[in-house]
């Protein structure tokens, strides 16, 4: 028994003096600019910007400041109604982020819970949820969106609901698959064996173990949602004036593309940059949370 009574010198050592890994560095590298953009958009009302909806028709289609005919009073130029493009971009970003975030949460919460339920309970519960997921994934998104918005009218809650409806199936599928493997782990069997109630196992033990995948998925979904919202607004199914989103700006600028490229190109660039950053951030998170790199 002497071996049992030794004092192990090394426990707790893993948490000290940890050097940031390459994974962490890229999470920060992509996360920081994203956080900056989001912060600027969310703090828009506090920034010294002109009213994004103030129309000055005499100033219409003024080019960005660095071009001939530009003026620093509107650094990124004005649109066909003389509204300041910079100000509209920032305020539009605000709504874009709010929609992306609420749409993501509205899809993630039911998706994760249903996936957890399907994976853990299996049997008919799983069969029903899995068929629903497949049905959802088989339907083309734009078609579903057009049908719902045409039937219910355009409004922000409906837009968020449409985006959630499109997103939940992805979460449900991934979380179900992970739960299936997790539920066979001895620690889960041990909890069942110890008589811990099912809801407690699912929410208290499985959910924290799924948090990594869920976070990665949610991040990647944000990019998809920004794109989807832009597509819907571009088609005239999304945000209604006087609300501004990048997709709506893109749609309005389309007619002026040959005359004034900046009106459409700048929101387009903003969408591209944010979606790209979100995806890179999600990928960085994924390699950070990769189970193969975890040390247990």
């Amino acid at each position: 028994m002497s071996a049992l009574t030794r004092t192990p010198a090394t426990y707790g050592a893993g948490s000290k003096g940890r050097v940031p890994s390459r994974g962490t560095a890229s999470v920060i590298a992509f996360g920081a600019p994203l956080a900056c953009i989001a912060l600027i958009a969310l703090l828009a009302p506090l920034l010294p910007l002109s009213n994004p909806n103030a129309q000055v028709l005499s100033e219409a289609l003024r080019p960005p400041a660095w071009l001939e005919g530009g003026d620093w009073s509107s650094p990124l130029g004005t649109d066909q109604l003389g509204r300041d493009v910079l100000s509209r971009l920032v305020f539009g970003g605000q709504l874009t982020f709010v929609i992306a975030f609420t749409g993501m949460v509205a899809g993630a919460v039911p998706g994760i819970l249903l996936g957890l339920l399907a994976g853990y309970r299996r049997g008919w519960v799983d069969a029903v949820i899995s068929r629903l997921v497949e049905a959802q994934l088989a339907l083309p998104f734009i078609l579903v969106a057009i049908a719902i918005i045409a039937a219910n009218g355009r409004s922000l809650p409906i837009l968020v609901a449409v985006l959630a409806l499109v997103g939940w199936a992805q979460y449900a599928r991934v979380i179900r698959a992970e739960t299936l493997s997790l539920r066979e782990r001895p620690f889960v069997l041990g909890l069942r064996c110890a008589g811990v109630p099912t809801w407690r196992i699912m929410l208290g033990h499985l959910l924290p173990n799924l948090a990594g995948s869920a976070t990665v998925l949610a991040t990647l979904q944000m990019g998809t949602i920004v794109l989807a919202e832009s597509a819907l607004s571009f088609l005239g199914l999304g945000v209604v004036a006087p609300d501004i989103s990048w997709g709506a700006m893109l749609a309005e600028g389309r007619e002026q593309l040959t005359l004034a490229w900046w009106v459409a190109l700048l929101p387009g660039l903003a969408i591209t940059a944010v979606v790209l950053l979100v995806n890179l951030f999600g990928d960085a998170l994924r390699s950070r949370f990769d189970p193969k790199k975890r040390s247990f």
Binding site: R185, C193, G195, N209, R294
Partner: peptide
């Protein structure tokens, strides 16, 4: 049964590394 297991019967599993919740 739930009260029987756990209080009257305990189980030890093969894989020690997976018998515990890694996040708790």
């Amino acid at each position: 049964f739930r009260n029987v297991r756990g209080s009257e019967i305990g189980m030890v599993f093969q894989s020690a590394s997976m018998s515990l919740n890694p996040l708790m």
